[in-house]
């Protein structure tokens, strides 16, 4: 209210139009945890993407004579029980873990958004799709994931090759068990949005449903989708590591952080570093992503933004 009483400064009044994402960024910057999270997440991404180009050691290179070494100049983090370099394994493992997180999140997001929009926009589909969502929410997810991986791992590995088959199986399994929250949030927002005047206006000039959704509805549900995307990355990385930790993830010659942790578990008394490094990387990634999610939620909320 007090803003209106201020005399209008012509320079301010006629400032050039500004992309609203700059406002989001301005708000995001004020969240210290989110900034720190972003910094950590970017450095982890750099570690796994650029790292192997600088530290050019084959993570699968066996060297039995150099097994169980401590940190040295040749092996900065030491070697494992087969003489493989831990640093290189962590870098390559991180690639797979982060890639699984991103792909699974994206797949889950697409499924969730599609079902959410369909259920919210088309009245006829609402009830069956929401029953389906309820059904999925009632599934025991971790046991089901374990069963899915155990059942289809060998078949898919045979048809698509060891790495690609398992990679897509795990991404797909995580996605199919994690889209429900997104669908519910999107449906709720779409239900409210489709009653707005601008959607009515668009419909009255004959815009087809598909274009109303892509042009008028989806951009407005983007913020909850983005928040659930960040949380989705975190939970996908945790799920993949948990699967690997239970021995039902990637095959042994594919190092993922969960797999390295699982293998290090047996050597914990002699070589604790082998467990601590992968665990620390998983935790840092998830923690940073969660903080980014927190910051994004605040930044994308117009009630908080600008205060």
């Amino acid at each position: 209210m007090t803003d209106a009483a201020k005399p209008l400064n012509p320079d301010e009044a006629f400032r050039p139009p500004r992309n609203q994402w700059w406002d989001v960024w301005d708000q995001f910057k004020t969240h210290r945890g989110a900034l720190a999270g972003l910094a950590v997440f970017v450095s982890i991404i750099l570690f796994v993407l650029v790292g192997p180009m600088i530290w050019q050691v084959d993570p699968g290179q066996l060297n039995i004579r150099m097994r169980n070494q401590g940190p040295s100049w040749d092996y900065p983090l030491g070697t494992d029980q087969l003489g493989r370099d831990l640093l290189a394994r962590l870098m390559y493992g991180g690639r797979i873990s982060v890639a699984v997180g991103l792909v699974a999140m994206f797949l889950g997001l697409v499924i969730g958004t599609l079902i959410g929009v369909l259920a919210g926009y088309f009245k006829l589909l609402d009830s069956p799709l929401m029953r389906l969502t309820d059904l999925f929410l009632a599934l025991p997810l971790l046991p089901l994931l374990l069963i899915l991986v155990a059942l289809f791992r060998d078949t898919l590995a045979r048809t698509f090759g060891e790495s690609i088959g398992v990679f897509f199986l795990i991404c797909f399994a995580i996605a199919i068990t994690s889209w429900m929250q997104t669908a519910r949030i999107v449906r709720g927002d779409v239900l409210a949005l489709k009653e707005r005047e601008y959607v009515l206006a668009a419909r009255s000039i004959g815009t087809p449903s598909l274009r109303i959704n892509t042009r008028h509805v989806l951009p407005n549900v983007l913020s909850p989708i983005m928040v659930s995307a960040t949380l989705g990355i975190a939970s996908a990385i945790i799920t993949e590591s948990a699967l690997s930790f239970l021995g039902l993830g990637f095959p042994p010659d594919f190092p993922t952080w969960g797999r390295i942790l699982y293998e290090g578990r047996d050597w914990i008394e002699q070589y604790p570093a082998r467990v601590v490094w992968p665990g620390l990387l998983i935790s840092l990634t998830v923690l940073s992503v969660n903080y980014i999610g927190d910051g994004l939620r605040d930044a994308l909320d117009p009630r908080i933004r600008g205060r």
Binding site: G279, I282, L287, N290
Partner: peptide, 14 residues
Amino acid sequence: MIGFSVPTFFTGVV
């Protein structure tokens, strides 16, 4: 936030 982010298989091992 830490307790929520650090997976149980890592806390357990630590």
